[in-house]
Design a protein around this nucleic acid. Structure first.
Length: 720
DNA sequence: TTTCCCAAGCTTTTT
DNA sequence: GCTTGGGAAA
């Protein structure tokens, strides 16, 4: 590796803003040598090295898929810490908690644990931490509650009622829609009418009432001590704005700001980065415009494209050498990307060999698709590929239901990322609501939830009770002197008993949870008579998760921001057995890599989603999504789709493969045919037959071992 | 006012 | 396939 960087000293001038006076201090200098015990030249290529050892000042690292972005960031952290920057002065902002944890653990291994004190996490988590500290300055109580998307919609619903009543005969938007309209106003900084115009033109007639509702919503949350996800970002900005002293204090502590996945930041996040780096000016953002996939929640690719203008004197480092995938996989990725309306001047290259061509696999229906995938996985496993180095990716959470059944049937362990989260299940939210009420007695959403679980109490009565509880100075947990009817006073006082007792003497978290669960158990059985055993297991699950937290507040914060934690328990449990296969939405798979990747349901209408068809920008995003999926693969890539699907009332109907994959030359994407092997001709493990796709125009993949089918049935001959 | 029942509608993707 | 909303009965 060449050592020629043309710089003896890694140094850049930097300017410190202190009060009104600008005092220029001398450049920060690091010795050229690597920190003890680490050979960065050995570990990194020239560009990566340049990025990792960058001195001060703003830098944009444009890192294509698989170009060692994480590796570079980790070495960057290690470099800075190794050169004496206190880990506490480093802020590493990432998009998902998974990404940040992965990064910090990997960095720790480089420098024996010192890096674990690096501050960071998701933007939202970082802001929450700040807001906990400064809530009072914004007129919020310290015990404010964080609302997840569902809770936020519930708050909207409380306010929506009277407004919607005025439009009885017309279709007033539903709570979720309203909540997401509000969210997009705040994420993009657009006005209500421009949001409506671009995304919800059919609701333009409700501009006025929605405007009023929006103001009420903002007001209400403030009064009740509630913050939604967007508030976390926006109130932090507001805090900085109204109180420059706080900004200075916070930003001074952020000597180096590192941001991962910068292409997916929205306006508020970009402003936060600007603010946090406003004292030291040391900001490194890493990203890839071709992998921007969060437009739907306000991410703005413009942030990364405009970075050089936004930060005067910013340098740009490009990483283009791909270390992950074979050339065949990159060829497909590059080819797919050329279909984008917005052109990317990006062509990934590798020095790895050509490798196997990616295959496109039509399956007769999704049962066959699932069998194909699971069989292939077993075969690869027989060849020594660990399950956790393989992944099945899909557009949306439910795309894998059928496959999950098949995997269970075959005893293949898997984890699933993305899609529905346990923390969103009704019974989990119930239990959490009790904790929330204990933490923040002003949390009306939680109160409503737990009160309405009681017999004979609906929205109206719940409202009256909440008023009673909160009417006094301190919340009163008693029915003494209450105006409520005897019909439910008994059940109400049982609830108050439990809450009052827990509030009085703060017992350890697990004991609190135990009391709550004891109280909730009969309610659970009654409300979910059908399937309460399954839900009871989930609650045990929750107890397990809770035991890892020191106190109620930190459990609640964590649940609000990172519901994935719950499914992480599965991982640990399974890992005793065999590291499990990964199922993931493409969104959740960002930043991960696997030896073999299966993209299922590569259908037109799924990927690209039918919701995006007709919107050029949205279609480009779908394309980038496919690009992200393809570039997760190192060696093997299969894109499959069912040729026939079922729909509720229409029955069977024919599908079309993703338009992004149609018309690609066979030399880039190889068509494969599934053939069902005669049953008795199948070797026990089925491994030998899948391994070598024979070179040729159409690879044949045999699908052995399907007892329910006539052995002579060739799939090609099935009667469609 | 609540609850129950039926119909309608709707779903990406995440913090 | 599931949640959400409306309407009617208790």
């Amino acid at each position: 590796m060449s050592a020629d960087l043309g710089r003896d000293r890694i140094a850049r001038a930097r300017v410190v803003h202190l009060m009104a006076r600008r005092i220029v201090i001398s450049p920060e200098e690091f010795p050229v040598a690597d920190p003890e015990g680490l050979d960065f030249r050995e570990a990194l290529n020239e560009k990566q090295y340049e990025a990792a050892t960058w001195g001060a000042g703003p830098v944009l690292v444009v890192a294509g898929a698989g170009t060692g972005k994480t590796r570079t960031l980790i070495h960057r952290v290690a470099w800075l810490v190794g050169h004496g920057v206190a880990p506490e002065q480093l802020v590493l902002l990432t998009f998902t908690r998974r990404a940040s944890q992965q990064m910090l653990t990997r960095a720790s291994t480089l420098l024996d644990g010192r890096c674990s004190r690096v501050r960071g996490g998701t933007f939202h988590a970082f802001c929450l931490m700040l807001l906990k500290q400064y809530a009072a300055k914004l007129g919020y109580p310290n015990g404010f509650t964080v609302l997840d998307a569902q809770d936020a919609a519930d708050v909207v619903d409380l306010l929506r009622g009277p407004v919607a009543a005025r439009f009885k005969d017309r279709r007033f938007p539903k709570k979720r829609t309203i909540a997401s309209i509000f969210s997009s106003i705040r994420n993009t900084g657009q006005s209500l009418d421009s949001v409506l115009e671009s995304a919800y033109p059919h609701f333009l007639e409700f501009l006025e009432p929605l405007n009023g509702l929006f103001e009420q919503y903002v007001q209400y949350k403030k009064e009740q001590g509630l913050m939604d996800y967007d508030d976390l970002l926006i109130l932090t900005l507001k805090l900085f704005q109204q109180d420059p002293g706080v900004l200075r204090e916070v930003a001074s502590a952020c000597r180096y700001v590192l941001v991962d996945e910068y292409q997916d930041t929205n306006r508020a996040q970009a402003l936060l980065v600007k603010a946090l780096s406003s004292v030291h000016g040391n900001v490194m953002v890493v990203g890839d415009d071709a992998q921007s996939i969060y437009r739907f929640r306000g991410a703005d690719m413009g942030n990364i494209l405009r970075f050089p203008e936004e930060y005067a004197g910013a340098s740009v480092i490009k990483l283009e050498h791909n270390y992950r995938s074979t050339q065949a996989i990159l060829d497909l990725a590059n080819e797919v990307l050329t279909q984008a309306k917005h052109r990317f001047d990006k062509r990934l290259y590798t020095e790895r060999g050509k490798g196997d061509l990616p295959g496109i696999v039509p399956a007769p229906d999704d049962r066959f698709e699932s069998r194909f995938v699971s069989q292939m996985i077993l075969a690869l496993r027989e060849q020594g590929e660990p399950l956790n180095r393989m992944a099945v990716l899909f557009r949306s959470g439910h795309n894998s239901y059928d496959l999950e059944v098949e995997l269970n049937k075959r005893g293949i362990p898997f984890v699933k990322y993305g899609g529905l989260k346990l923390a969103e299940a009704a019974h989990i939210k119930d239990v959490i609501a009790y904790l929330k009420v204990l933490e923040n007695p002003r949390d009306v959403v939680a109160w409503n939830r737990i009160l309405q679980l009681l017999d004979g109490i609906g929205p109206k009565t719940a409202g009256r009770i909440i008023e009673w509880v909160q009417g006094a100075e301190a919340p009163r947990y008693t029915t003494d002197g209450s105006p409520f009817s005897a019909a439910y006073v008994a059940s109400l006082s049982r609830l108050f008993d439990v809450l009052g007792r827990l509030r009085q003497h703060e017992s350890p978290l697990d004991e609190q949870l135990e009391s709550i669960l004891a109280y909730y158990a009969p309610i659970l059985r009654e409300t979910y008579t059908e399937d309460y055993p399954k839900r009871e297991t989930d609650l045990e699950h929750l107890t397990g998760v809770a035991s890892r937290f020191a106190d109620r507040a930190s459990l609640l914060d964590s649940l609000a921001l990172d519901p994935i934690e719950l499914s992480a328990v599965d991982v640990e449990k399974e890992e005793k057995d065999e590291p499990p296969l990964v199922l993931s939405t493409i969104h959740s798979a960002k930043g991960l890599e696997f030896k073999s990747v299966f993209v299922i349901q590569s259908l037109d209408g799924v990927l690209p989603s039918s919701y995006s068809v007709g919107d050029a920008e949205a279609m480009d995003e779908e394309l980038r999504l496919l690009y992200v999926a393809i570039t997760r693969a190192e060696d093997q890539l299969f894109l499959s789709y069912p040729m026939v699907q079922f729909r509720r009332y229409e029955g069977q109907y024919f599908t079309k493969p993703s338009r992004f994959l149609e018309g690609l030359p066979d030399t880039i994407l190889e068509p494969c045919t599934l053939v069902e092997a005669p049953r008795d001709a199948v070797p026990d493990d089925g491994s030998s037959r899948l391994q070598d796709g024979l070179p040729g125009p159409s690879r044949t993949l045999e699908a052995p071992n399907q007892p329910s089918h006539d052995a002579s049935d060739s799939l090609d001959d099935l009667p469609f």
